[in-house]
Design a protein around this nucleic acid. Sequence first.
DNA 1: GTTAGGG
DNA 2: CCCTAAC
Length: 707
Amino acid sequence: MSLWDMVLQKRVDCGSSGYQAPVMPHFPRSAKGKRSVRKKVEDNQMCAFDLLATVAGNLLSERENSLAQNSLTPCNETGTSNTVAVRDTVTQDQLDKEKPCKLEAFDWLRCTEDLSGPENDLKMQIKHDMKENTSKATSSDPASLCVKSDISDEDPIGGESKLFGASGKIGHAVDTVAERYAMGRPYSSPAGSLECKEDGSKKPQQAERPVAGNVIDRNAPHMYSLSDAMDLDGKTPALVSSDSSFEVPLYRKNIPCNSSFPKQDECMDLPMDKDGDENSSGCTHPTVVTNKASRLQRIGDRRIRKLLASKFWKVSPTMLQDDVEQKPALRGKRMCYTRQRTQRSSFKRRKLFYNCSVSASDGGIYNEGVSNIHEKGRIKLETNDLHATWFGANGAPSSTTGQKPCCELPDYHVKLSIKSFKVPELVIEIPETATVGSLKRTVSEAVTAILGGGLRIGVLLQGKKVRHDNKTLRQAGISQGDKLDNLGFTLEPNPGQAPAPLTGSEDPHFLGLGCAPEPLPLARIPPTAPATKDQGVSDASPQPMPTCPESDHDSVYSPADASSPEKTTANSLALVAVPPMNVEALAMVPLRSKPKRPEAAQRRVRRPFSVAEVEALVQAVENLGTGRWRDVKLCAFENANHRTYVDLKDKWKTLVHTARISPQQRRGEPVPQVLLDRVLTAHAYWSQHQAKLQLKPPPSAEICQLL
DNA sequence: GTTAGGG
DNA sequence: CCCTAAC
C-alpha cells in the first residue's frame, strides 16, 4: 500500500463514515482572570505548510545530530536543469531505487512579516524564524525542486510534475489540494508509536523523554524517537485562543489532465530544512528540501509509514502516568497510541484532542478535577474560514517531464495556486510555556487531523459552489483566466456525515416504524407522490428521498438505505465501503467537553432536518395528525434520540411556514415541493379536523359504539 | 410529561 | 432551538 493509498484510505474511512466537521465553540475569553494570551496567527502569516515543514524539520533535526552530513547533489535523473537533489550518505544504489519527487515551484510569496506587536515571545520567535528562513531561501532560487523521497521504499514516487488540465476533474483538483494537506501527515508530529505499549514502564527513562514545554526543542541533546514525540502530543495541553489563520502561501499545483486519482504520493515532500524551526516560515522563495536518507532516517520514515498504515490510534489512559504534573489537563486522558484499525479509535483520538482543545479558555473546566496550576498561561489559537484562490490561468500546456496529453482537444492547463487556506473553527490549546516548536506541531496536527478526513474541500466559482465533481474544469468554467480570480476553496463537513439521516448519530434507525396510522383519516388525503425524486433535491443534496413506509407496511426505514447512495455521491470519498460502526463514538460534533458546569447548559447543536426526516415527519403527521407529537415521535422518530417531540412539533411549525412562503424566501436545504404540498394539505386537514372536534364533540353514543 | 405558542 | 405557560 502506497503512502497515498494510506492517506486516501484514511480519508475515506474517516470521511464518509460519519465524522462531522468539528464545530468548535468560540469560547469567550474567560472572565476569571485566567489570562489566556490571544494571538492572531493570522498576523504572523504562518502557513500550514510552514508548520508541517517545521514539525518535520524538527523531528528530523533531532535525528540529525547523529547523522552524517548531507550534501547537495545535482539531480540528473529528471533531466531538469533547475533541480537539486538532496542526498546524504546513502549509497547510490539506494538512491537509484527511489525516483525523485519533483515539486514544481514552491512559492512563498505570502510571507509578509507583519509581526508587529511584541505581545509574546512566541510571536517574536516566529518572526525570527521567518527571517532566518527568508534569508536562507533567497540564496537559492530553483524553479523546481527535485527531492529524494524516502517516504516510501516500496512505492517509488513518480517524478512527474502533475498538472491540472483544463479537463481535469474538479474532484481531482480538489483532492489534490486536500492531498496536499494530507501529505503533511507523515511529517507532522502525530504519528504514534507502534512501540508504545499500554504500560508506561517500557518507556524510556523519563529523563530522556522530552516533556511538554520543550517538545520540539531542537537544542535537546538527544534524539527523540517517534514514540517520544507521540507522548509529547499527548502531553501538550492543547489550548487555545483567538482568531488565527494559517495561510498556505501560493502553493502552485498543476492538475493533470487525466483526472484519475494519483496513485502515488506525488510531490508530497514538504519543504523543510534540516533546521526545522529556522526554515519554518514563509519565505519568498523555495527552500531546498533536505531529506536525509541515512539509515537512521529510513528507520524513522519506515516507522512513519507504519504509523500511517495503522491510521488509527487507540487511546489508552494507562500511559504516561509519570507525567501527570506537566499535563494536568490531560490527566486521565493520557494518550497512548497503539495500532488500531478501528475507525472508532481514530475518532476517539480526535475527540480527545478536541476535548483538550476546547476547554482551555475556561481555565480548566474540562478536566476532571484537575488542578489549574498550569492553566494560567495559555495561548489560544483559532483559525477561521478557509479560502483559497486559484492561480491565474495559464494557457500553456505543461512543459514538465513526462506529461502525457490525454485528451484530444487542445489541453490547456489551469495553473492555480492557493493563497490563504484557512481552517475554519479550529481551536488549538497550548500552554504558554510550550515551545514554538510544539505550537507549530500542535497546529500541524490539528490541521492535518481535520483534513485527514473530517473535512472535504469545496470549490467555489464566483461565489457559487461547484458541486459536480465529475465536470471537467473546462466544463465548470474554471479554465478561463478571468474567472479564476473568483475561484476559491472551502472546507466542508464530510458529506457522508452531513445533515443526512446519519445525523441521528445516536441511532441509525431514526425512523422507528412506519408511521402506522391509528385512525386512518388520512386515507383521503392526497397520497402525495410517494417520494418522487425531486430534482431540486437530488441536485442540491445527494440525499435520496427515502420513502416513509406505507401505513400498511411494517417496514422499517433505515438510514443505511439513504446513506449508501449518498456516499456514492461523495465521489472520491466513497472508494471504500465503510463498515458499520458505532456512530455515537463518532459523534464528536459538539466538541464541548462535558460541561462540568451545569449552569452553562449549552444550546444543543443545531441539526437541520434532512429531507428524509422531513419525509418521515410529514408521513407521520399525515397519519396521526397535529397535536400528537409524542405519538409522532414514537412512531417515526423513536430511535432518533436527538429529536424530541418538541423538535418535531417545531419542525412542523416551520414546515408549514416554509410551505407558505415563496421558494425564494426559503433557506437551508430545500425541501421538495412535493413534501411541502403534503405539509399544507395535512395541516389543513388536521386543522379542520380539530375545529370539528371542538365544535362537535362526538356524541356519547358514538363513543360507546367505539368501545 | 405533553402540548402549544412566542421568541 | 429555547423557554414556558397551561394542562
